[in-house]
Computed example of a mutant assay.
Amino acid sequence: MATALKANSKYSEAEWTARQELAACYRIFAMLGWDEMIFNHITVKLPDEDGSYLINPYGLHFSEVCASNLIKIDIDGNKVDTDNPWHVNKAGFVQHSLFHRELPDAHAIIHTHTTATMAVCSVEGGLRATNFYACNFQNQLAYHDFEGVTVREEEGKRLLENLGNKRILMLKNHGPVVMGRTLPEAFLKHWVLQRACEIQLATCSMGDPIIVPPDVVAVHQRDLHQVQIPGGAGRAEFDAMVRRIDKIDTSWRD
């Protein structure tokens, strides 16, 4: 997927690859309508710089993000590449920094405000076992009560307590925080969660949904692990979407 570095590049090969992958993810989200004006974030750890992360420039739409304008920050949201003219929405990084700092496996973190996921976060019972995709997540989601905009560090303790050993946190009345060991894995989790929520909204608008029994959910989740995925979780799906955005615009690679 990565475009070769220029000979005089200031980036390492590992950083440039991470930048291009993250820029591609932002463009994919824009294409799928998962953007929220200039808000929301997808962040990733840099593989070759401990304590450094990439985040979108505050003020750009997801469709404007490219590899070179992503901002490198430290764990507190401070800019590392000070020559980057764009700003960081530090308020939006508060929860990301918490999970990146405390969870070694949270390499990539996605927070969105899509209509479907926010709606499911805003009803009693949250995501229910009413469709194929929703069954993937039964007993896999954590929930956190709404406490207002997430800018207060003291909320962090409760966020971690409510998350527990799960890696998707549904912020009630707000939206999901999806974490992955890789960016493609986090992308695929978000895609499946989005579909599960969209279908739940459609189903509930039609009448009383059919709830899948717990024993059937258990069989479903067991059999999901039998699927062999080339390149690791999410890689094939992510690369397919990269090919789609390349047909629209390749400027994300720059």
Rank of each mutant, 00 (worst) to 15 (best):
M1C: 00
A2K: 05
L5K: 14
N8W: 08
N8K: 11
N8E: 14
A14S: 14
A14H: 13
A18Q: 12
A23W: 02
G33F: 05
W34L: 05
M37A: 11
M37H: 09
M37C: 04
N40H: 04
I42A: 04
I42M: 14
V44T: 15
D48I: 10
I55L: 15
N56Q: 12
N56M: 12
P57D: 13
Y58L: 14
L60V: 02
H61N: 10
S63M: 03
E64S: 11
S68E: 15
S68W: 00
K72W: 02
D74L: 01
D76H: 06
D83Q: 08
G92L: 12
Q95E: 06
H96L: 08
L98I: 10
E102K: 13
L103H: 05
H107D: 10
A108W: 08
I109Y: 03
H111A: 03
T112W: 01
T112G: 01
T114D: 01
A116C: 10
G125N: 07
R128H: 07
A129H: 03
T130I: 14
F132K: 06
Y143V: 01
F146Y: 15
R152F: 12
K157E: 15
K157I: 07
N165F: 02
N165E: 14
L169G: 00
L171M: 15
K172I: 03
K172T: 10
V177I: 14
L183Q: 07
A186F: 07
H190I: 02
Q194M: 02
R195N: 11
E198I: 10
E198P: 03
I199E: 07
L201R: 10
L201Y: 05
M206F: 12
G207T: 14
P214Q: 11
P214S: 08
V216Y: 07
V216M: 11
L224C: 04
L224K: 08
Q228M: 04
A233E: 14
G234V: 09
R243T: 11
R243S: 12
R243W: 03
R244I: 13
D249G: 03
T250W: 04
S251D: 13
W252E: 04
